[in-house]
């Protein structure tokens, strides 16, 4: 499939994270994380970027989300920088959207109210109530949440809460969406729905970039154009985890393929990744 790599949208340069332990020693979680995310351009199509950062459970993937999003991590020492946009600027809290694993939403508000609050700070809406309300209605419909608009988050299913959490971040307007274990706890049918939804979200605009952080290799890779393998295998404990391999699925002809999960090459890639973890 024809594609080109354009400008750099996100660049992680020498990113590392460590904590000072109570015994005075330093515990390194990540070290020398380096990668770039380019704008992928396909003629005649709007193509966002979907990158998967895969690794074993407990390696610090959720911490990595906070690190990439520029959110503070208590009692830690962060090295390196994460740059975003063009011209490249260091990431600040609020520049990237996060959809956490448990799809947190404020418990006391209705879904419609939550979406309106999410849209409130979107500069494109200029704090205009009608524009915000119209957009919220549009997203409620697009994310099949119209009937749930007056319900509280605790009255929604896991899949509905996930859709609402994604809709929140999209309404705020950030081009970067970090997803923490988006397939965790979903039944096989819901996983397909989520894959479909993420694929649609990535096609909203050229610069839309989804970063999936997951230990579910098969599903994460099935939707991605690039895979980063985060591992500590073969490294000393004090060195922490790092990106041991970057796989360009687009180059291998494995991106944007609806039946990619059944392709032998895809299965080989999954096997290779497992060997690296």
């Amino acid at each position: 499939m024809m594609y080109q790599k354009g400008e750099i949208l996100l660049s992680a340069k020498g990113v590392g994270l460590s904590f000072k332990r109570e015994d005075g020693n330093v515990s390194t979680i990540f070290k020398d994380i380096n990668f770039d995310i380019h704008d992928i351009v396909r003629p005649g199509e709007i193509t966002g970027q979907v990158l998967s950062l895969v690794g074993r459970s407990g390696i610090g993937k959720t911490t990595m989300i906070r690190l990439l999003a520029g959110l503070p991590i208590k009692h830690s020492t962060v090295t390196g920088t994460v740059l975003i946009n063009n011209p490249q600027m260091p990431v600040n809290p609020g520049d990237m959207g996060i959809v956490p694993q448990n799809y947190y939403l404020p418990a006391s508000m209705s879904i419609q109210k939550i979406l309106a609050i999410a849209a409130y700070n979107n500069k494109a809406y200029k704090y205009d109530k009608k524009t915000i309300d119209d957009s919220v209605t549009e997203y409620l419909s697009a994310f099949s949440l119209g009937e749930q608009k007056d319900k509280l988050p605790s009255q929604l299913s896991g899949g509905q809460r996930q859709r609402a959490a994604i809709a929140c971040q999209l309404l705020y307007g950030s081009n970067f969406l970090l997803m923490d274990e988006p397939f965790s706890g979903l039944d096989p049918l819901m996983v397909d729905t989520t894959l479909d939804l993420l694929s649609k979200v990535s096609k909203i605009n050229e610069l839309k970039t989804i970063i999936i952080i997951s230990h579910d290799l098969r599903n994460a890779c099935a939707i991605s154009d690039t895979v980063l393998v985060l591992s500590q295998k073969g490294r000393k404990p004090e060195e922490g985890a790092t990106i041991v391999k970057q796989i360009d699925l687009a180059e291998m002809g494995l991106a944007w393929e609806p039946r990619v999960k059944e392709m032998p090459l895809f299965l080989d890639v999954i096997r290779d990744i497992k060997a690296l973890l």
Binding site: R66, A69, P100, Y104, P106, I117, A118, N121, C168
Partner: peptide
């Protein structure tokens, strides 16, 4: 208060004072 509650409002562009309120 769980950290993700603060993260939710931070990632939606709400300042620390607005977070204190909400």
């Amino acid at each position: 208060i769980p950290q993700e509650e603060f993260d939710f409002w931070t990632t939606l562009g709400y300042s620390p004072w607005k977070q204190l309120y909400y």
